[in-house]
Structures are given as C-alpha cells and as structure tokens.
C-alpha cells in the first residue's frame, strides 16, 4: 500500500471518528450546568487547538534534528506538519466564531484559546511564506528549521502571555478547560475527540508528505523512499 493510500485511509477513519464525536457530544453527553449547550463546542475546539500547538512543536523538533542530521525527510515532515497545523488553526478560527455568535452574541471574542490560535496562525503563515521565498532546497530547509525552532519555543510564551492576560481580566463567559473536574462521561467524550483529532493529524500529514514526495519525483529528483 502506498503512502498516499495509507494517508487517505487514516484520514477516512479519523473523519468517521470526528462525526462520531459530534453525535456523542450532542446526544449522549450531559449538558454542562453553567455554560449550557455552548460548552459542547469544547469537544471539537480544544483538541483542534491543542493539535495546532502540537504541530508547531513537531515542526520545531523536526527542524532541530534537521540541523544536525541534514536528512531531507525531516524537512519534508516539517513542511507537512506546518501545513496541517495551519489547517487546524483555520478550523478553530472559523468554527469558533460560528459557535460563538449564538452564545456570546458576537462573532469574535478575545477568548484565550481563540486568541492564541490566531497568533499561532500568523506564525504558520510566516513560516510558510519563508519556505516559499527561498528557492534552493538546502537553504530553504535550513531557514525553515531555524524559524521552526523559534516557533516551537514561542508556543509556550504565547500560551502563557495570553492566559496570564485572561486570568487577570476575567470575561463574563470563558470556556475553561477544567478537565479534571469534568464528569466522567464528558471526559470520555473529550478523550475520544482528542484521539479522533490525533488520527486526523496523522492522516493529513501522511497524505501531505506523500504529495510532496510525488511532486519531487515528477521533477526528476531522487526522492528518498520510506515513511516518516
């Protein structure tokens, strides 16, 4: 089975899982007392936001190893992970306001998770722009690695500064991920969702990786074989 094929399979399974999370969250998980049905977005939103951060950290890790090993597969992975991270950030940034409108009465709120995802989105855009601006593959990989490593180190700072800001300026409604105090059925739904999004990430990255392999092969390169 080719890599692209595998990627498509995993993505398919992941999408089925996400749909199942939806059903489970809407029909089989109790409504949260304080926030009402609005809280249900939390099952989709939090895993996607988490993976937006995790994808950047993986970009940075791949970059770190690239600088020492000079293995082009690491750079290929970093590129794939960054693009998938951008997609996840976009999901958070678009579904957030859609859910937010009926609940908060406004499209955009400076909710901590939404805000930090927005900054990460800018980080991804900058990273992909730099990749696009350098033609030589070796130079591109090196520059991307440097920026990726800085991005990885920035993630906790963005997280901290945004949450520090929010905790000092409490908003009337905030979706607090108070995971430990969740009733077990909510926790189970949340964990299920996290698994679904993890699968989705793996599926997307695998497909994207296969795509860039194929593109280089077409260009007449000698693509290194092997999975991620």
């Amino acid at each position: 089975m080719s890599l692209a094929h595998k990627g498509r399979r995993i993505t398919l399974v992941a999408l089925v899982c996400v749909a199942a999370v939806y059903v489970r969250a809407l029909a089989f998980t109790p409504v949260e007392r304080l926030q009402g049905p609005a809280q249900k977005i939390f099952y989709l939103h939090v895993p996607a936001a988490l993976w937006t951060e995790a994808a950047m950290i993986l970009v940075g890790l791949a970059g770190t190893f690239y600088l020492f090993l000079k293995d082009p597969r690491l750079d290929r992975f970093a590129e794939a992970s960054a693009e998938v991270g951008t997609v996840f950030a976009t999901i958070v940034l678009t579904t957030g306001p859609i859910w937010g409108k009926p609940i908060w009465g406004t499209w955009w709120t400076w909710d901590a998770r939404l805000t930090s995802t927005l900054f990460l989105f800018f980080l991804y855009v900058g990273y992909l722009l730099v990749r696009g601006a350098v033609r030589d593959p070796g130079l591109r990989a090196r520059y991307a690695a440097v920026l990726g490593i800085c991005g990885m180190c920035l993630v906790p700072f963005i997280h901290l500064s945004v949450f520090l800001f929010r905790t000092l300026h409490p908003q009337p409604i905030i979706l607090k991920p108070s995971a430990p105090s969740l009733p077990s059925s909510m926790l189970a739904t949340w964990l299920f969702s996290l698994t679904a999004f993890t699968l989705l990430y793996v599926g997307f990255v695998t497909q994207r990786y296969a795509l860039s392999l194929a593109r280089d092969a077409q260009r007449g390169g000698s693509p290194e074989a092997g999975p991620v």
Partner: peptide, 14 residues
C-alpha cells in the same frame, strides 16, 4: 515584519 509579528506578542503584552 510578517515573521517577526507573532514573536512580538509576548514582549508586547508583558
């Protein structure tokens, strides 16, 4: 400017 922007966030907020 574009790549530096997200990196300005923490020092700016602080």
């Amino acid at each position: 400017v574009v790549i530096l922007l997200p990196f300005l966030v923490p020092p700016l907020i602080g």
